[in-house]
Design a protein around this nucleic acid. Structure first.
Lengths: 204, 204, 204, 204
DNA sequence: GATGAATGAGTGTTCATTCAT
DNA sequence: CATGAATGAACACTCATTCAT
């Protein structure tokens, strides 16, 4: 008697999940080519035939794997919309949250940077990343404008502010190696906020 | 009659040079594994066998190739020491120069970021990069301190300032895609300087 | 209440039948290796697992599939024994019938020729084909002898005549590509009869 | 010092030749899929890497292999044009030569029949085979017409005669298994000639 | 009986490395 | 020095077969 549909689906999803988690880890540590399908299979406790069974081929697996951190990042940008407080408060909250995210999940985002560095090899994923950038910008710029209006932020071109912050985030992800809870990160958070040109009370 | 020693050496160096230039281009465009030795041979007009003759093996070639942009970056940081003007002037000059460098030679630095993303695969190069970071910091921090002393810069921890600027530079290299001469870059330069906390005359 | 034996058997046979029909089509169009079990399953609307359940393994399925056209051919040769008319009439009838068969079912016989071309791979099926040849010869030669006796056919070695006709049939099956109802086929039928050396009235 | 060009080329051609001969044998005995590249490599005393080096991929090797017997057949048809004697003499000579060829090189032609049976899989080779059929027809039909004109042959549609002879040849290649020098072949040659409708002296 | 998930042997292909010339 | 032919390890992918449910 064949397994009932629901059970199969759940098993399937759990297994896919496990494979993807492992794949993200290996792909970001070792790169696309040094990560073989059988390594992923072994590390995720699945027979290597199943990888192709679930993901069709290695490229597909890679794409699905990269989309996961991209979508997590995606969510993080919208945090700014669902938080109480003034514009600057919300920006600070977002920066703090994202820097932490990037810190604690360095590896995961390494995968995104891998794609950024191999634009020619993954055009579809690049599209996804561009779309992600646009969405993020559209989420953040209104808050910047609001902050400038109420005098919390200096009037600097919001596009520039956002692009520089976005770059900064990516930059610390690839070039800072301090361990997650090091106090240094708090200072990097402050520098991130600083890119938004907050007006200090004493300067008002 | 054998060629005089000097002439042979020069030929040899020119050929190595040519191979390395080509290798940097291919490695950064296509990644380590998609760049085959025979592609490099063909693109640099050198016979296939010579590449191994000159560089021992592919890994060596890659390492030598990556060291070139690293060393160019290295030089660029010391610019700050050989320029006239106040601390802030020198910092501004350096930021402007480096942002331009990163912009015009995006590809070349992509190679460095490739290594940053593959720490496990290239431990020796990582050492090189860490050393480079330290040297750069040691070159820039005295100028920051000087600027703070003479009241050009707000007193923010210099280590933090440098690390954030360094990250910012890398970040724009991987995530900004505007063409080199786009006016947007000027604004990104300003944001770079802003990370050093210059005190605006009006605030003084 | 279990199904009555007869009903189950019938279902089973219908399913096997359906699988075999599909298998013949796919095997002859695409060859043994390009025809996968799951393609057969899908095309015949049977679940993947059932194919192995019914046929044990792929090789068995192939063998059973090839036997079907062989047995159809087998029947066609005996037609000659159950037809009225003179020896030449019966030969003519057989040739016409068989050429048509080969024409209309080119695909089906392609499977037999596939085996003929892969003798080493299917020794058992080759035995079957040799047996078939012998049976066919034994059915046809008496009629040839009869025709020669009554002066309808020239006295040529009946073994030779049969072997050449048999080859001719196979030959047109693999090398003539005109569509089934093309008038050209009638002329090929005449050439088939000609191999039996009929004595034309005018020559008598 | 690199090998002189001529020497390399000769070595290369000899090796390609050896590989092709082996490939023809294996492909015709075992079919496309049961013949692995490493089997070919082993049987021809070449490292398996060389096969891809010389032939790019398995498909190409197969194509080159099939073209060899096709081109040999091609030549054999033109024999008819370069032989002395009456039309019937020349036809007889051709039939004898070709039947022998097919007999002695059964294996080699099996490859051609393999392609004939897998039309969908090898469309380019099918084009080649159709072209070959047309060329052969164009070589033989004038001789048939000549024979009919001078009263050596009965006036039967030359297209039909040629097509039936062509089929006959292919048919004996796939369905007659007597060893090459068996006297039976002589009789099969006679049946081949018979398809051209020679007028026997006694009937004239 | 019936299903399709799971397994892993087998193959084509790529490519770094070696080495004869 | 220079060349490119030769080798074979390594990998992605396919698919027949098994078997739990």
């Amino acid at each position: 008697m064949p397994r009932p549909k629901g059970v199969t689906d759940k098993l399937r999803d759990e297994k896919k999940e496990k494979i993807l988690t492992t794949a993200i880890e290996l792909f970001s540590n070792d790169g696309y080519h040094n990560t073989t399908i059988s390594k992923i299979a072994q590390a995720s406790g699945v027979s290597f035939g199943m990888i192709n069974y679930y993901f069709e081929n290695k490229d597909n697996l890679f794409k699905e794997a990269v989309l996961i951190p991209i979508n997590e990042l995606r969510k993080s940008y919208f945090l700014i919309q669902n938080v109480d407080g003034s514009a600057l408060d919300r920006i600070s909250e977002m920066v703090r949250y994202q820097v932490r995210e990037f810190t604690y999940n360095k590896q995961k985002f390494a995968l995104v940077h891998y794609v950024l560095g191999r634009q020619n090899s993954f055009p579809e994923l690049m599209q996804e990343l561009f779309a992600f950038f646009d969405e993020s910008r559209d989420a953040v710029i209104p808050v910047i404008l609001e902050g400038q209006k109420i005098g919390e932020l200096d009037e600097v071109d919001p596009e520039t502010v956002f692009a520089s912050y976005f770059s900064y985030l990516n930059g610390i992800a690839i070039s800072v190696f301090d361990p997650p809870d090091h106090p240094f990160w708090e200072q990097l958070i402050q520098q991130g906020i600083h890119l938004f040109h907050p007006i200090h009370p004493s300067n008002k």
